[in-house]
Design a protein around this nucleic acid. Structure first.
Lengths: 240, 240
DNA sequence: ACCGGTTTTCGCCTTATAATCGAAAACATG
DNA sequence: CATGTTTTCGATTATAAGGCGAAAACCGGT
């Protein structure tokens, strides 16, 4: 039960780590987590563990990342961990305990166990899902300009992003809606930017990323009609 | 530790289930699996469990599906299961124990616990990955005609697929290569079909499915150059 | 009030990829 | 050799993404 909680800070992707005060891996930096309780599922459990580190209301999205189970991943005793990816909007600055810090994923400190690999997987997952879902909602504030959103995507993806293209791709998919309001101009003037928000605060997959689509009226030769869920209500869609 | 092992049989997607001979859920159909050993990771473990049910050499691909952990998913005692997706090429017909059968996923029998939901997740994962990976290799024989492959995709996706389009989409991506040989004509004559094979037998993600790409030379403003893995060597890519 | 400087926004065009359609190719049978 | 069947291929259309530059909307200073 571990979580890689990511947030964009100062234009870079950061992850929440705490410094271990005991063996094994004393002094190294580790992902927050804990043991699974008897009457909770893994998702509730990880949420509960995180409550010690950050204000839970700040975590906009959380999902399973995978199971890490190499027998020797934790020296001494057998530990099988279910890892999660958590995302915090960039305008939140949750209070964290004194042993806990945000670290840029591009320059991790000395990490414990296989936690560096888990962070890499989390980053990969985030990058991929930014492409074909509305996952940006979990990184952005409630209201934002396109430029601000562009900066978030650039930090998360690790490469420059065209504001024009971002705007249109997201608008066409219906994930971005204008609020009608505008932001104040910057110090040097310039046209005031329109404010946008994400249409939904829940993960949704872009339909169009599926290739080899059904002809058109998509008759479907599945058995059990009505049993099949439509692509758009898959919350934790599809890949790993 | 459970596996939903899928195979196309008689033009429909099937899953391997065994009938429980003990409580709880006596008589119901369950996914094969077992407990994690002390010195193995979950993937090795599931492979080991499957060895009892099918010839392992027949399983062309296996990957993590997710953790199922609702406290009451198994009545009586606490069971947290890591579920896997396994795929068997359609030309294999592994010998299975007498309590084990293939069942069409469209018409599952009385299933135990939450196994029906796991099978649905497995099917969703397969459908999605057929779109943007070369995962078809795990469903198809070593050599096949486009028509045969079309039938496999149709069965897995649940909707009609154009052979022409399938051919070119996969060829353009470089996942399909002609062997040069041709199949024998059918009983009614017709032009003999060319035989193809998948270029690789390992999962590979189509690069192009990523949107919001880097400008062109993809400079990348990541830290730690060389640390980052390229999209194409992600074996278990990216989504869930 | 006007002018240069700045930032955002929008329309037009190009490119990339997928889907559709129909004609031609290659075989079997009578 | 004509006919029917199946596959293959080229040409075309459709859709989505990326690139580019002009126009819009604000600033501060002259």
């Amino acid at each position: 039960m571990l979580a890689a909680v990511l947030q964009i800070r100062d234009g870079a992707l950061n992850v929440l780590l705490w410094q271990r005060a005991m063996e094994p891996a004393l002094g190294r930096w580790a992902l927050p987590g804990g043991r699974l309780g008897a009457s909770e599922d893994v998702q509730s459990s990880v949420s509960r563990q995180l409550a010690d580190k950050v204000d839970l209301r700040e975590v906009a999205h959380i999902e399973q990342l995978g199971v890490f189970s190499a027998p020797d991943r934790v020296p001494g005793r057998r530990m099988v961990a279910t890892a999660f990816l958590g995302l915090v909007p960039c305008d939140a600055d949750p209070a964290v305990p004194s042993d806990t810090r945000w670290h840029p994923v591009a320059a991790l400190p000395d990490t414990a166990f296989d936690h560096a690999a888990i962070v890499r997987d989390a980053q990969d997952r985030l990058r991929a899902k930014l492409s074909y879902t509305n996952l940006g909602f979990a990184l952005a504030p409630a209201e934002f300009t396109i430029s601000a959103l562009r900066d978030l995507y650039r930090a998360a993806l690790g490469h420059p992003v065209s504001a024009t293209n971002l705007q249109r791709v997201l608008a066409r998919r219906g994930v971005l809606v204008p609020t009608g309001r505008t932001a104040a101009s910057g110090p040097a003037g310039g046209r005031p930017a329109a404010l946008f928000r994400f249409a939904e605060q829940r993960l949704r997959v872009t339909d169009a990323f599926a290739v080899l689509r059904p002809p058109s009226g998509e008759p479907g030769l599945d058995g059990a009609p009505g049993t099949r869920r439509s692509a758009s209500d898959l919350v934790h869609p599809v890949v790993t």
